[in-house]
Design a protein around this nucleic acid. Structure first.
Lengths: 227, 227
DNA sequence: ACCTGAACACCGTTCAAGT
DNA sequence: ACCTGAACACCGTTCAAGT
């Protein structure tokens, strides 16, 4: 009873068993597709998401997906936004600690994406889904309450966005290719007369990503703070 | 004589004409491959670069490429670094205006990538080529000379890197999908009770990308400046 | 040393059809 | 309304072979 539907592609013979749909194969739906897509992306990375594989995991034919979704791109859009959900303490709270609030939300943003490393390299090409928008909304409110001038508000939001995106994308890509990074540092050491400064500071070997993220974010918030 | 080799795929009959290789079809080489790859990427975008198409443009068979290059990935790596060359006034100059120097170099970085929008979405997954490294080296020297403490140096470099990458990637992706952006703003206006703050500040309609970039960079440099 | 075509194991998506 | 298989026009890369 356990591994019933695993190995055998026995779609044809399903009707013979009499039970009313026993949870086992709920009908296809956008939701189910997105959930499974995220699973697949987590497991196999961005290259691993294939319409054929996705359909397989769902126990459906490839073309069935196209009833619920227009193009493969849509699956990417939906998967990305699905991953960026944010629940935080209600907005009105503690208007004094805007810095802490901003840091919390942005670190969570980064963490959410690093939990699904594919999301980082996906984001650049994707549309702004509702979860992304509501994070931007939240950020805007925090900064506004903090006293950032209206004329600076958009620039401030985008600069934080830029910082977080850049950091996350970089982090995720280094994660994937740790060997490449080692190779780069090797080359760097070999050519230490060409890159003396970053060689000396061990720029590529510094492993404290979280610390660097927080520190840099601190710099930026310092610069943003209304004087 | 002009459009000699354009339409006809007459590889077979080439030997009949007697001339010594008249510049027309220089032998395949890594360099030629990279140059053509950049052209192709500029023209067709990231999806447009295909080993088959690339070989076609070079008047060679697909598999000939694989003598000069291991995998398609390599072509991407090489194309990316090729685009990031930086020539600036010699490093020793004007030690006083570090801020101007940093801004110049980072704006040039962004501009170089925006000239080849595919580079922005490529970078996250790529190795650090020599041109990228030498920019980081340069940045490190500037900040060091500016008096940034050694303990802050790496964090400072990465935060600037993050900012520039985030900004560039975002800019490039919005460039590609201007309609998507319009659609997003539409949805946003429709749901203005959900996103009142960013709706009011017209976050998604603000078109002054260059201004926003400079402003945000200013914030960050302010935060970085040794007090 | 350099280049090649045929073949393999994949893709996303159109289309006409089934229930 | 929802699902399907066959077919089309592509991919990157292995392999055995040519010069």
């Amino acid at each position: 009873m356990a591994a019933k539907n695993s190995g055998a592609r026995s779609k044809r013979t399903r009707r013979t068993s009499e039970r009313p749909p026993p949870v086992q194969e709920p009908p296809l739906s956008r939701e189910r597709i997105v959930t499974t897509a995220v699973e697949l992306l987590d497991a196999q990375g961005i290259e691993g998401l294939t319409m054929r594989r996705l359909a397989d995991r769902l126990g459906a034919g490839v073309m069935s997906l196209y009833w619920h979704v227009d193009k493969k791109e849509d699956v990417f859009d939906l998967a990305l936004d699905a991953v960026l959900d944010y629940r935080a303490s209600p907005p009105g709270n503690e208007p004094q600690d805007w810095r802490g609030e901003a840091i919390h939300m942005l670190e969570d943003w980064r963490a959410s994406m690093l939990r699904h490393p594919w999301s980082a390299s996906l984001l650049p090409r994707r549309v702004l889904g509702p979860n992304i928008l509501s994070r931007l909304e939240r950020l805007s409110q925090i900064l506004s309450r903090a006293g950032v001038a209206d004329t600076n508000l958009n620039a401030a939001i985008w600069s934080l966005w830029n910082y977080v995106m850049g950091a996350t994308i970089t982090r995720a890509s280094f994660d994937v290719s740790d060997d490449d990074r080692a190779a780069a540092q090797q080359r760097l050491t070999r050519l230490s007369e060409r890159y003396p400064t970053i060689e000396r500071s061990r720029l590529l070997l510094d492993d404290d990503w979280n610390g660097a993220f927080r520190k840099g974010l601190g710099f930026l918030l310092d610069g943003l703070s209304p004087k």
